[in-house]
Design a protein around this nucleic acid. Sequence first.
DNA 1: GCATTAACCACAG
DNA 2: CTGTGGTTAATGC
Length: 227
Amino acid sequence: MFENQECLYCPFKSTAAKTLNSEELSTLGANCAQASFKKGDTIFKEGVFTSNIVYLKEGIVKLHIDGPSNEQIIKIARGPSYLGIPTTLDQKYNQYSATAIEKVHACFIDIHTFKQFVHENGKFAYEIIIELCKNEVNLFNKCVNRVQKNIRGRVADALLFFADEIYKCDKYLLPITRTDFGNFVASTRETVSRILTEFSSDEIIYLKGKNIKILDRKRLIIISKTG
DNA sequence: GCATTAACCACAG
DNA sequence: CTGTGGTTAATGC
């Protein structure tokens, strides 16, 4: 009956997409394209014209902006999650870039279809607003933390972030290089490198290359709060 | 002044 | 790409 059932049976549907009926999901399916990316691939780039909302089904990406001196990693996100709502809805050009840091499956949703849902389906629009609100509050906190915590606190924060938000496990393989880690916590690769070895010799974490294991979560939390 | 913090530079695995 | 050492500027006590 409906031509396109891909979205209907998608196990990675966003909370917003869950409010769509089968007809709408069929429309969505007909107006979006899927793509896979491998580590290091650019998903979209700052400054480039865009007409798609990008939805991250699976995988991990970094969102980043070319700053005056360095690349700044704004956030690291794990699917399922929307990636490019602010950059597409209100802006003609991408305001930031997204790069895969692990294998990624993403959907490119036609902006007109997306806008149509926002206009016609209040529940859908509401869920999108919720998502945007969460992001804003989150970034407010990140902003304060980045400016007011010392680096040891910021590195501890980042380690906990990967464990809690990204991998949901205290043992993981860091998906980024030290340089990127530096860009993520607004510091440099040298400093990050030093602090990680310091945490390791204090037996707060196990560290071998990119292998991380949090050994003393309590102390890490204290450091993240007090620096 | 003296100590601390963290960036910058340079060089070696 | 990473780790380490030396240097240096800013800030605090």
